[in-house]
Amino acid sequence: MSLTLTLHTEPEVPLEAEALKPERFEGMTAAQIAAVAVLYGNQEAPLGDFFRVAGEPDGELCIRGDATRVKMIGAGMTRGRIVVEGNAGMHLGAAMSGGEIFVAGNAGDWVGAEMSGGSIVVKGNAGHLLGSAARGGRVGIRGGEIIVHGNAGNEIGSGMRRGLVAVAGDSGDFTGVNMLAGTVVVLGRLGWRTGAGMKRGSIVSCHPAELLPTFSYACTYRPVSLRLVFGHLRARGLPVAQEHFAARYHRWSGDGIESNRGEVLLLAA
């Protein structure tokens, strides 16, 4: 049986648990794992105060219970797999460079912020700043991929440098703001000010959107590369409609206040 942590006491204030990653527990006994320190509010506390430990460390970590207030699950992880059977708190997989994270429920803000590799799948909704740069930082996700089956909040892909962020539902405002490269796909609707300040990269939506006046219409065509991206996402379980593969897309170039080398592809009616 893989290592399983079951939440028995829900924290009243956020629990910062950067230790929750498979590699941290390699070779440890259940008692040792329960004694690992986490930050509860502004004080250290043993992991066992909140989680019941079962199973053996084998590279996979299963977290049970509503971990909405558990922050930094999988942050900085380099390998292994985490399965969150409920919800996950903020900073899930932040700065991770490898491995996989699967969340059956919802995830908070800053999912995969500044990650450089690996993959994160959220079956529910995700908060703001998915795959983004930290405040004060200029570069967001540098590699890997984040797939959200529900909706996502504002500023997803902020400062994105490389990689793939995909949302099956809608995204909030400032999708791909200050993007440097990479790909953001939103099968639903985009919020306001998509791609503001973007230098390069692709933002795709399967709905119309009103863009900033600093974006210029280029053409309406059938991008072959989008077929590859959609095929990749469908293979990962995202429900991309068949008609979207071969559809025509309006291509907008922007942001004109930057290098104007980015693109926004919007499904043509």
Binding site: R200, S202, Y221, R222, P223, V224, S225, L228, V229, H232
Partner: peptide, 24 residues
């Protein structure tokens, strides 16, 4: 200089602008 690429499953695909759209 107008080319761009997509990296999927560790495979890089180049998108070269051509007169009927893009050559991947």
């Amino acid at each position: 200089g107008f080319q761009a690429s997509k990296l999927l499953d560790s495979r890089r695909f180049w998108r070269v602008p051509v007169m009927d759209g893009e050559f991947v």
